[in-house]
Write a protein that binds this DNA or RNA. Structure first.
Length: 288
DNA sequence: AATTAATGCAACCGCCTGGAG
DNA sequence: TCTCCAGGCGGTTGCATTAAT
């Protein structure tokens, strides 16, 4: 049963795209622009679902996509953005020019997950000799391993105090910046040391154009800081200041280097006052 | 050289959101 | 206000490639 597919699958191609299909799609979009994905395949002469076309264009054919390996800077940036935003791949991708959400998601799942896991002292305790003994049983253990990894990930999450923000829809990164629309109220630190962190904070009205994220911000143990959202369990933490903040989307003007510097500035802050100021400037970089 | 396991990435799936009517 | 639908998103799968045995 379940939900009907987004489009009829009868007679439609699936799987890897051929160069011919790529050419047809690229040609059509160059001529007519993006959008109207549902009707696009028919008009472009493609036997593909509209979603598939959109995905292919967004993740592979778009001219502004940067191919090649993720650089060290990008790597570090992804880690830090992930610690801030969780699995908000499109949001993270919006801050890294030329990279797609799918690419970043894959990179995280294949490279950075391991990297993060290896940084944990009590994780992956298996010795090299032990790992050499791995045999065919690995296959049989795959499911168990998957479950174990899930548990390990949960452990890591706890250790690094990374809290996933509540899913929020955001504006495309090409929107212009309008600083005036931004409000960042870091003064609401009334709940410092308040154990009853699950209490709801009313969001401001009339802020439909920004991500309305009611959260707590706290310095983590691993030089990062997490966003503790109202709908998630919140761990008591020193230096936690409650704030109401908004995360407008990327305006397309910031550079990777600038953002990178901002992170370092933020992470080197010691006193709360300075921290709030820097947080201000960082949050400002998300302005729509 | 053959087989098996591990890895990486492109693509798919299904749910959610926002806009139009 | 409600319903429908297109587009967007994150999670997952499948397959090609590479490494290990």
């Amino acid at each position: 049963m379940g939900r009907a597919p987004c489009c009829s699958k009868v007679g439609l191609h699936k799987g890897a795209w051929t160069p011919k299909e790529d050419a047809l799609l690229t040609k059509y979009i160059q001529a007519h622009g993006e959008g109207q994905w549902k009707s696009l395949p028919k008009k472009a002469g493609l036997l593909r679902c509209g979603k598939s076309c959109r995905l292919r264009w967004m993740n592979y054919l778009r001219p502004d996509i940067k191919r090649g390996n993720i650089t060290l800077e990008e790597d570090d940036l992804i880690i830090r953005m992930h610690s801030l935003l969780g699995n908000r791949w499109s949001l993270i991708a919006g801050r890294i020019p030329g990279r797609t959400d799918n690419e970043i998601k894959n990179y995280w799942n294949t490279h950075l997950c391991k990297k993060m896991r290896n940084q944990g002292p009590d994780l992956d305790e298996e010795s090299p000799s032990a790992s050499k003994k791995k045999t065919k049983k690995n296959k049989q253990k795959k499911d168990k391993k998957k479950n174990k990894e899930t548990n390990e990930d949960e452990e890591i999450q706890k250790k690094t105090k990374v809290y996933l923000p509540k899913p929020i829809r955001v504006k495309p990164l090409t929107l212009p910046r309008t600083d005036s629309s931004f409000t960042f109220d870091s003064s609401a630190s009334s709940s410092q040391g308040n154990n009853n962190s699950n209490s709801k904070v009313e969001s401001q009205e009339g802020t439909e154009d920004v991500m309305n994220l009611v959260c707590e911000v706290g310095m983590g143990e691993n030089d990062g800081f997490g966003f503790f959202c109202e709908d998630h369990d919140i761990v008591n933490e020193s230096n936690v200041l409650e704030c109401q903040t908004y995360f407008p989307m990327d305006h397309g003007q910031g550079t990777l280097e600038k953002l990178y510097e901002e992170y370092f500035q933020l992470l080197s802050v010691e006193d709360t006052c300075q921290y709030e100021l820097d947080l201000d400037s960082f949050a400002e970089s998300f302005l729509v």
